[in-house]
């Protein structure tokens, strides 16, 4: 029924080779094949952003990209960016400001926030709201999330001066 595809990719700095069904999407691949379960599956059609994963440096919807399309790519998940301490300030700010409740959306928000700050070190609150608008949170009402991102933007600017 399913055709299988051989793929080789880098996941969180480790080379991975697997044979996967062609229709496997990237988030299911990292969750069930690699047991990296920090990327969550929320809506399965690209709206909620809970499955946000970074591929070749840019965030993607893990539910809209096939694992086969990641052949040869560099893939980073919440586990990888946690281990590398790349977003430790964002993580601390989300923690400190309670920018999470059930936590299901949190990894996706963190990766999205990191992409925003890498593109725009001084976003206004409106720009933060705009950039994270592809990620849904049903618990917090976003206020705390915007606060946390705004704070980290300020801290990073200060550190850079």
């Amino acid at each position: 029924m399913d055709k299988n595809v051989d793929i080789s990719l880098s996941v969180n700095g480790q080379e991975v080779s697997r044979r996967v069904p062609a229709r496997t999407n990237l988030v299911d691949f990292v969750r069930y094949e690699l047991e990296l379960t920090g990327s969550h599956v929320g809506c399965e059609h690209g709206v909620c952003g809970a499955c946000t994963i970074r591929v070749n440096g840019a965030i993607v919807r893990g539910c809209l990209m096939l694992a086969a399309q990641a052949d040869g790519a560099t893939v980073e998940t919440i586990e990888g960016v946690s281990e590398s301490s790349e977003i430790s300030d964002l993580q601390a700010a989300f923690h400190e400001r309670n920018a999470l409740q059930c936590g299901f959306c949190t990894p996706g928000f963190l990766l999205t926030a990191q992409e925003l700050l890498s593109q725009n070190p001084s976003p206004s609150r409106d720009e933060i709201r705009e950039f994270i608008s592809g990620n849904y949170c049903r618990c917090t009402g976003y206020q705390a999330i915007v606060d946390a991102i705004e704070r980290v933007a300020g801290e990073r600017r200060q550190a850079a001066e």
Binding site: R31, L36, T37, G38, S39, H40, V41, T77, I78, E79, S82, L90, Q91, F94, H95, E96, N98, L100, Q101, G103, F104, T106, P107, L110
Partner: peptide, 19 residues
């Protein structure tokens, strides 16, 4: 006090049933 699972939430280590 902050949410007891916050550290797990921000690192993806907090386990839901599907995890």
């Amino acid at each position: 006090v902050r949410h007891d699972s916050a550290r797990g939430h921000v690192t993806g280590q907090a386990q839901y049933i599907d995890d």
